[in-house]
Structures are given as C-alpha cells and as structure tokens.
Design a protein around this nucleic acid. Structure first.
Lengths: 255, 255
DNA sequence: ATTCTTAGGATTATCGATAATCCGCCGCTC
DNA sequence: GAGCGGCGGATTATCGATAATCCTAAGAAT
C-alpha cells in the first residue's frame, strides 16, 4: 500500500496518520488512549512503555485506531501479509496483534479463513447497551464522592455533545458521549467494574451508525442533564438509576 | 509437519495429563469446556471445531487447563521455547496462545521479560466478587423462566457441594459452586451479561485458596438454599437480590 | 444444462534461524 | 570491600521461507 516510506523505521506513525479519513483525530486519539490505558491497567499497575517497544503492540494500536475511526469497516477483511507489508514488518507480529484483538472481541477470525472486523448484530448491540446500563448503575453506587470538578467536566462534555449534534457530527457526538460516561465510571472504586465497562466500550465502537433514528438523537442527549444534576447534589443512587434507564432507552431503537 | 506422532496429532494430551497434580480431573475438564465454549460463542455462533485445527488454540487450551488445575501456580513463569518443546511445536503458535491469554487477563507479559500466570491481589479479588454479584443479580432479572428441570440441577450441584465440603475437597467445592451459579446465569437472555460473567470466572480461578477461612465455608454454602427456593417459586427478583448478597458476603473475608 | 472433479491462486499456519534485549556474574578500579 | 562497566547465557522479538488449507473456476462426465 503506502509502501517504501520516508523515515520511521518499522511502523511509522506518519503513514498511519497521513493516510485516510480524518476528522476529529485528537478526540479519537483520546478514546484510543483510554483503551490502551485499560489494557495497561490489566497488564501492570503502571501500563506505560509497553507498547513502545514491541512491534506487535504498535500494530495492535494502529489497527484498533483504524477500526475506531472507521477506516476499517465492520466485516472488513484484515489480511496478515497486507498489513505486514504496510507496516514494514513480517507476518508474525501482525498475527500476534490480531490474536489479541480477537481475544478482546474486536476482531473475529477463523482458521485458514482469516480475520475480519467483528460485526455486531442488533441483538448483540441491545445486550451490550443493557449491560452498559447495569454496569454504570453499579459503578455509580460504588463512587465514594463526586467532586465539583468532575461535574464541570460533565457539563463541558455535555455542551460539546449538543454542539456536535447540531453540527451533524456523529463522530463527535459518540466521542463526547463516551467521555461523559467514562468520567462517571472512572470514579468507581471497583476496578473490575471499570474494566468490564471499558471492554464493553470496545464493542460499542459501532459508532452511532446504528443510531439511524437521527431524529430521536437530540432528545436522547438531553437525558444527560438530570444525570448531571443528580451527581451534583450527591444523589448517587438516583444517578445510577438514571444512567441505567438512559442506556436501556436505546434498546427500544434496536429491536 | 511434526508427522511421526503416535496417535494424537500434534499436542499429545497424554503428556499433558500424565504429568502432575491431579484430583478431580473430570470436573476440571467440564469447567474448561465451559470456558472454551465461551470463546466459541464469541468467535462464531457455533463454536466447535475451531480449536481442533489450530495448534495455537490447542496450546492455549492446554495452558489454560494447567492454570486452572493448579499445575501452573499464579506468578509462575511461562517460557515460550520450553512450552514449544513440550508440545512439539515451534515458538510461534505458543506466542499466539500466550497473546490471547494475556488479552483475557489470565497471563501477564512484559516485553523481553516473558509471560507469567497472573496473580490476583486481594483487592482485585474483592472487586471481582462484587462484580460477580452484580452480574448475577442482573442476569437473574433477565431470566424468562426457570424450569423445574433447572431447579433439580441446582439441587444436585448443591448436594454435591455439601458433600465435597465435608470431604474437605476444596477443588470439588469450587467446581460445583461454579456449576451452580453457571446454571443460573446461563438462563439469562442477555448474552453480553453471560459473556461478562464467564470472563470474570476466568479470573476467579484462584480456586478456593483464598478461602483460607475454612471454618466459615460451610455456612457460606448453606446460603445457596434460599436461592434455590426463590427460583423454584419464580421469585426471580428476590433470587437476584440473594445472589448479590451471596457474592458480596465473600468480600468481607478478603479486605 | 448440471454436477463433479480438480488445478491454480491466495492466504493462513507453522517452522527454523537470526536479531534484540535482559539479567546475573566477573573482573576492575578506587 | 564497594561500586561500576562490560562479557555471556538465557529468553524474547522478529524475520524469511515453507507447508497446509481454502476458494474459485475451468473442464470433464452425465
């Protein structure tokens, strides 16, 4: 593909970034960063320099980014040698990257048949939204306290979300929505809940494509306001209830 | 390839099974089988012959089994070439197996430092038990109906659990306990909840080692009876509440 | 025309070897 | 004797090549 590159020795981030569709790259990066952080947490307390050294980790990061930003569509084939050539690597590290992505459910592969970006059926999506609601409710009940500073972050994200929806920027809506919810769940004392929520987030990546009911989107977004209010007044239990209902609300759109 | 084998084509289960500590192998097998099934579900609707073909899947299965049955202790080093020699394979499939195990949190690896069986801190274990309680409560509320046949299964497992505890067979207790809970969660309509619960089960493998408070074990087991009663009378919501409390009850033993 | 068989091309799975990195040990300096 | 710097063994990371498998489609048989 974008073969013989310029400088970067093995996997040049340049090629990754200069390539295709690019909208709000910074936002996407932050999402990706949180995912990487998730795995870092799982692997070691301070998950930092892990993906700097290993080619297979860089490849995994790059593929994940492309899946998240829509470069690779759901169902799209991921050929090992093609990716290897693109990254100026051999097949082995690409395979390892795909194995990890397969294990966390981002990619689906069959022996001798290759790997594809995993597609989510409406049923799976419905189940995922329900589970997200359950986890967010539980997480909220485990929050020790919700400081004013965090409330302000919520308001910022909420405002950005409304701005994005009026601008018709679905990508932006998805991103700020995710940030909003993450800001809440991250305050949870229970790391396993947080981990489960994040691993679910990976599967929810099917950006708002599924939200074909664009007309109902604005009203869905407005339901974030009461959540902010409940959190500000420290009514965590009620906030949890609202979050659960909020997620369950999407279910009806999905069969 | 490694043609000249005896019977089992590549990875001879013989060597795997003839090796070390062995207690109630059949029970362990069933646990493993359920885990494999879990991944099968994730990979394709009918996850069956996937791990028959690929060496890396068989290796993953074998390593997982050894971790589950205690052959590989938490923290133990897993050397790639040692495993490769043992399975009569090259390094590549072993690496792929380890990458997958790493992604699901069973193994932890650092670049150039190798892979180890992941250890769970008391805090992680506490969080895991809490999450399990939450998931089981949610799952129960999503159950459509709980037939008499399933109730009988629960009673069977419950009886086996009590028998195991009087016999001092901790492995057996853990296994039947797991079967008991699985029988409930499997009736859940929401596949994502089921998946999350199963992936948690992998981390809870730290068998009942943690349950050093052996004296309190019998009473903890008795708390299964009201759950059975609630399910038999169709009081699913109450059963969910009991299951949550049941799991949370273990938390106090773990700080 | 339809079905069956079977080359051919494409891709994955595995191998064996090499490069890169880490760790402990030994001698050296002070 | 203590600290330091670099050799050597051990192990992982990556490579390039080969074997195994799958898919397609052309051709033969009915």
């Amino acid at each position: 593909m974008n073969g013989h590159e310029t400088v970067q020795p093995p996997l040049d981030d340049a090629s990754v970034a200069s390539d295709p569709v690019r909208a709000s790259t910074a936002e996407i990066k932050s999402v990706i960063a949180s995912m990487i952080a998730e795995e870092g947490e799982r692997n070691s307390a301070a998950g930092t320099a892990l993906d700097r050294n290993c080619a297979h980790d860089r490849v995994r990061w790059a593929i994940l980014e492309r899946i998240m930003d829509g470069t690779y569509q759901p169902g799209e084939r991921l050929k090992e040698l093609t990716l290897a050539r693109e990254f100026h690597l051999s097949q082995a590290p690409v395979r390892e990257a795909l194995r990890k992505l397969e294990a966390i459910g981002v990619v689906k592969s069959e022996p001798y048949r290759g790997a594809r970006v995993r597609e989510l059926s409406p049923t799976e999506l419905r189940d995922a939204y329900q589970l997200r609601g359950i986890l967010e409710q539980a997480a909220t009940e485990f929050i020790a306290d919700f400081p004013e500073e965090a409330v302000r972050t919520l308001e910022t994200e909420y405002a950005a979300m409304r701005a994005a929806v009026t601008a018709g920027d679905l990508q932006g809506v998805a991103c700020h929505n995710r940030n909003f919810h993450r800001c809440i769940v991250e305050r949870c004392q229970n790391q396993e809940i947080l981990r489960a929520w994040k691993s679910l987030g990976i599967c929810m990546r099917a950006r708002l494509n599924v939200q074909r009911r664009l007309d109902r989107l604005p009203e869905a977004i407005l339901s974030h306001q009461p959540i902010i209010d409940a959190l500000r007044t420290g009514n965590l239990r009620y906030a949890g209830q609202l979050l659960r209902d909020h997620s369950f609300g999407f279910v009806s759109d999905l069969v």
